[in-house]
Design a protein around this nucleic acid. Structure first.
Lengths: 236, 236
DNA sequence: CAACTAAATGAACGTCATTCATTTAGTGAC
DNA sequence: GTCACTAAATGAATGACGTTCATTTAGTTG
């Protein structure tokens, strides 16, 4: 019998609204905020393979089944984590400066966040925003930014969705092995592709420092700038 | 004891090259082509949740462990399926006509194929092309198309990667629920976003028939045309 | 104190992918 | 024909894992 000590970085968000009819024990060991924090900690330490209900329970000093009093399923835990990550996406650019720069800041940070959490991409891409307050907050800010920039109302959502799709796909790229395009023994039968791969690997001249110089970064920059330019003509 | 009868749509690709030193039994019940075909059949009938090693073995009238004589893991089976799907992507446009139209044909069919196989996206995005002949063949055709269209050699791969990223992300969109952007009770606190969502839902005037008229299609078209336009300026 | 309830427990389940020692059955060499 | 060799199939076992459920624990209200 483990003594209840733990108390992981729990945020104790037991704000106000909560009046049930009968007994409301205050010594709850678990809550959603605590589960979210523990899940994030677990992912940081062991990656997503390490994120199991058993490991989560162990970190919280609790039996695995206890989690199900606060969360309906493991999918539910993923949603908590995912929504939290959305608050890490930088939308500050939409407060001032040009629309182009705001989109750049937003898109790069969005990609960077999910490049480190690719297992969440299949989850988020299908997630109704209703269940995700932080996600909704991000959309509001971005929508306002697009609107202020003169985007026609009916194009705002499609444009954001297109950008997001590009961002999610690009997040996977970041995690791809460096030699992903090594054609190996088939090189002889794919001359154009092999030449293109070699040539793209050579042109690795990074502006300054060696930041954003990985192949995935080059492709992301190219696509992002194309999208920004392409959208630029459809607004105003 | 099940009598060995089965013989599912196996392609018996035991071509030529294969000279080992000793006994080479010909009555092999299993081979990679057969496993691939069975896996595809299973996915078609039951989806990816239904694709288990046990189900695969049952369909092939074999014990589950027998599969491991031909395949190293379930991941390996997914790779076989994925590479097969690549042959369904339409690259015929690169044979003639404009570069723009070729890219359109390719991108739409690419997205459509993987919209029905989203569980493969995390697999393919990280898959070295070495192990995937069909994938490599597609890259060769597309690379040549870009090269012929006047693309600078070192930009070909990044451009293809950017397009693919957009395509993969967009494939997820297709499977998203229709009400994914329903802000629900939070609508009041997200006025710009809510208005944009409503407005995009109204502008659902589809050119002819009701083809390609889903929200996911609108976003995909918008992004794809922006990418094509954006890339158009960097070549030539 | 008694009624009520949220929450934690621990023992089950069922499903999976995967491993391994063993058996089966073709094939080429002598 | 038979012997050695080997690819391939078997069936039992293993170890995660997510999830369920009857039961217990402990705090709050009236």
């Amino acid at each position: 019998m483990p003594t209840v000590s733990a108390a992981q970085g729990r945020t104790t968000s037991s704000g106000a609204a909560q009046k049930r009819r009968a007994g409301r024990p205050s010594a709850a060991v678990l809550d959603k905020a605590g589960i979210t924090a523990a899940a994030l900690e677990l992912v940081r330490r062991k990656g997503y393979e390490g994120l199991t209900m058993a490991a989560l329970a162990r970190l919280l000093d609790v039996a695995p089944s206890a989690l199900y009093n606060h969360v309906a399923s493991k999918q539910d835990v993923l949603l908590l984590v995912e929504d939290h990550l959305m608050s890490l996406v930088d939308v500050s650019g939409f407060g001032g400066g040009t629309w182009e720069d705001a989109v750049r800041t937003w898109a790069w940070s969005y990609r960077d966040v999910f490049a480190e959490h690719t297992p969440l991409i299949p989850v988020i891409a299908v997630l109704p925003v209703t269940d995700a307050p932080q996600t909704l907050a991000m959309y509001e800010t971005v929508s306002k930014g697009f609107s202020d920039a003169g985007f026609p109302q009916e194009r705002i959502v499609p444009a954001i969705v297109a950008l997001e799709s590009f961002i999610f796909g690009s997040a996977y790229d970041v995690t791809a092995p460096e030699d992903i395009f090594d054609s190996g023994s088939m090189a002889a039968s794919t001359p154009h592709f092999t030449a293109a791969v070699r040539s793209s690997a050579e042109g690795q001249d990074v502006p300054a420092g060696q930041e954003r110089g990985r192949p995935a970064d080059t492709a992301f920059r190219l696509g992002l700038e194309a999208l920004i330019a392409g959208f630029g003509t459809t607004r105003a």
